[in-house]
Computed example of a mutant assay.
Amino acid sequence: MSAISILALDTSTEFCSVALYLNSLGTERVIVRHRHTGAVSSAHVLPLIRDVLDEGGLALGACHAIAFGAGPGSFTGLRTACGVAQGLAYGAGLPVIPVSTLLACAEMARAQRPAPGRVMVALDARMEEVYWADYTWDGPSQGWVVNHDAALDAPDALPQPDEPFMLAGNAAAIFGDRLPLAGQARAVLSEALPHARAVAVLAARDYALGRTLPAHEAAPFYIRNKVAQTVAERQAAAGHRATLAHLAEGR
């Protein structure tokens, strides 16, 4: 892998994370800005992008692609990363590389444990549910193997792998005993969370394999349908129940 430069973004959590991946003749360098911004990552992401590009001495148009954490994760955060990546890619004439936030967690686990083997990832999805996926690291030549792609389940419904595994993601810290999988893992890496560094490293592999998309095809990956309507639907359902109760009382 030579002369590759990739800008990577992730705003799927309460952190605004930006990285610039540089690879010249096999020498890798990753410049990172990773800040806790709460729900206002959109106000920080462009200044952080300027920071990493300036430090890398690179213009946006000199990058080979723009990668982003595509999901699952925060509905607003996913739209922010996707929208910024798409807009910048359009303007600079670059392709985009969507990266699973769950796979990014597995990659962060690999950064902590270089030979991770089997890695289950479980992230808090709110509403008493967990985003999860199951991966195996098959070495540098093969990379990550997907045993089970991203899914959404109750914390006590996650399957246990049939071999020793590590658990990455914050679900163990959030759900405790309600996530039985945590007690079965050989290691729990609660700080292995979505991060632009991991998005960049994974995107570099995808770029080398030709796995890019034109900017107009950039899209977030939500898993949970109709996220934006959840509150409205709950209110409508409550109103419907109240109406039915009122009608029942009048009988």
Rank of each mutant, 00 (worst) to 15 (best):
L7D: 02
A8Y: 04
T11I: 06
S12M: 07
C16W: 00
S17Q: 04
L20N: 04
I31P: 02
R35G: 03
R35S: 15
H36P: 08
T37F: 10
G38H: 03
A43R: 13
A43M: 12
V45H: 11
V45K: 03
V45N: 03
L48M: 13
G56C: 09
G56E: 09
A59T: 07
C63M: 08
F75D: 06
T76S: 13
T76H: 05
Q86A: 03
A92P: 08
A92G: 13
V96P: 07
V99T: 12
T101D: 03
C105L: 06
A111M: 07
A111N: 04
Q112W: 07
R113W: 00
G117P: 01
R118P: 02
V119G: 00
V121W: 02
V121F: 00
L123Q: 04
A125V: 03
M127S: 12
W132Q: 09
A133R: 00
Y135M: 07
T136Q: 11
W137F: 12
G139C: 08
P140W: 05
S141E: 15
Q142T: 12
Q142Y: 04
Q142C: 14
H148G: 14
A150N: 14
A151H: 05
P155F: 12
P155D: 01
Q160C: 08
D162E: 15
D162L: 13
G169H: 00
N170I: 02
A173I: 02
A173T: 09
R178P: 04
P180W: 05
L181V: 07
A187N: 00
A192E: 05
A196P: 01
A196M: 08
L202C: 11
A204S: 11
A208S: 15
A208V: 10
L209M: 13
T212S: 13
A219T: 08
P220E: 15
Y222G: 10
I223M: 08
I223P: 01
Q235M: 13
A237G: 02
G239D: 09
H240Q: 14
H240N: 15
T243F: 07
L247F: 10
